[in-house]
């Protein structure tokens, strides 16, 4: 009997306590939600400029682990905050999908990738292929910024999958990532040829680690020599040479300053691979230029020559 009395007493206290707590909770919960939304509101407004009410969706599950925030633009659609890893650094973007399953907004919030390459995902050449797409269409990656754009597309797809699941839209998997067609090569040029004679690259920096020497070389390409752009700049390459074995270890872009969509075509494995293991003492070594990006390809060759001859 005593235990029953005690149990009842405790239960009564707990019930009263719970009631009082529920009261406080009712008062504070909307304020808390409002505060949380406020920090994201600016970004959400970019995606849905006409929407006035936003809600945070707390419970969401993303298998890919890329979606870090889900918001509802009441009456307009859903917004997803996604974080992916690009070439080197995280990229955070907001994707807006309207209630009729179309992508209506894409805003990059954080981006720290290679300038001239990674930031192409902010430009129309990428965004035009994102906005307007449905939640099941394919989205092409950018050639020359493959790693970054593929990561972003993966993130977009993660958000789209969540949207489809929540709305019950069937995704037959016909969408996804559209990979670019393979690289077309043109004629070959020698590293030590006349083309690389006339204009030469300039070694800007050099670090030595035993036998391995890493050169940062600036080399004028299309933009400077023919494009006539206002603030044309040379391309910058990283050339790594093994001076003991006299071979090229690797060549890659530091800065691509030629025409977007053209010069960056050479930023592909099939192009850079040509340089690997070339014997620098052999003056007949040559590489194939990428068709449609000849001058940029030659600027790479010039950079390599400048590094070799340094």
């Amino acid at each position: 009997m005593k235990i029953l009395k005690m149990g009842l007493f405790l239960a009564l206290v707990a019930a009263l306590a719970g009631g009082a707590l529920a009261f406080v909770n009712n008062i504070t919960a909307p304020i808390i939600a409002e505060n949380a939304i406020a920090s994201e509101k600016a970004n959400l407004q970019k995606i849905f400029p006409d929407a006035s009410e936003f809600l945070i969706i707390e419970d969401f599950e993303d298998e890919a682990g890329l979606v870090i925030g889900v918001y509802e633009a009441v009456g307009y659609g859903m917004a997803y905050k996604v974080r992916v890893t690009g070439y080197a650094n995280p990229i955070v973007f907001m994707l807006g999908i309207s209630d009729d399953a179309k992508i209506v907004g894409f805003a990059v919030l954080e981006l720290n990738d290679t300038p001239g390459i990674g930031d192409r995902i902010e430009k129309p050449e990428f965004t035009d292929n994102v906005i307007g797409k449905t939640t099941t269409d394919g989205i092409p990656v950018l050639s020359g910024a493959t790693v970054t754009s593929a990561a972003v597309v993966k993130g977009i797809n993660a958000a789209r999958t969540m949207f489809n699941e929540s709305k019950g839209i069937d995704d037959d998997g016909s969408g996804g990532i559209i990979t670019p067609p393979p690289l077309q090569f043109g004629p070959s040029i020698g590293i030590f040829s006349t083309q690389t004679d006339r204009v030469s690259g300039e070694v800007m920096d050099k670090t030595t680690d035993g036998d391995i020497v890493t050169y940062i070389v600036s080399s004028r390409g299309y933009a400077v020599l023919e494009g006539g752009y206002d603030d044309a700049k040379p391309n910058v390459f990283e050339v790594v040479i093994n001076r003991a074995d006299n071979v090229i270890v690797s060549v890659s872009f530091i800065e691509m300053n030629d025409t977007q969509g053209f010069g960056d075509k050479i930023d592909a494995d099939e192009f850079w691979e040509q340089f690997v293991d070339l014997d620098i003492t052999d003056d007949t070594i040559e590489i194939d230029v990428v068709s449609g990006a000849t001058m940029t390809s030659v600027s790479a060759a010039r950079a390599v020559r400048a590094a070799i001859e340094d």
């Binding site: 306590a17 719970g18 707590l21 529920a22």
Partner: peptide
Amino acid sequence: QFMDLIVFIL
């Protein structure tokens, strides 16, 4: 969810 603290400590 707001009852979590009371319930947990009990």
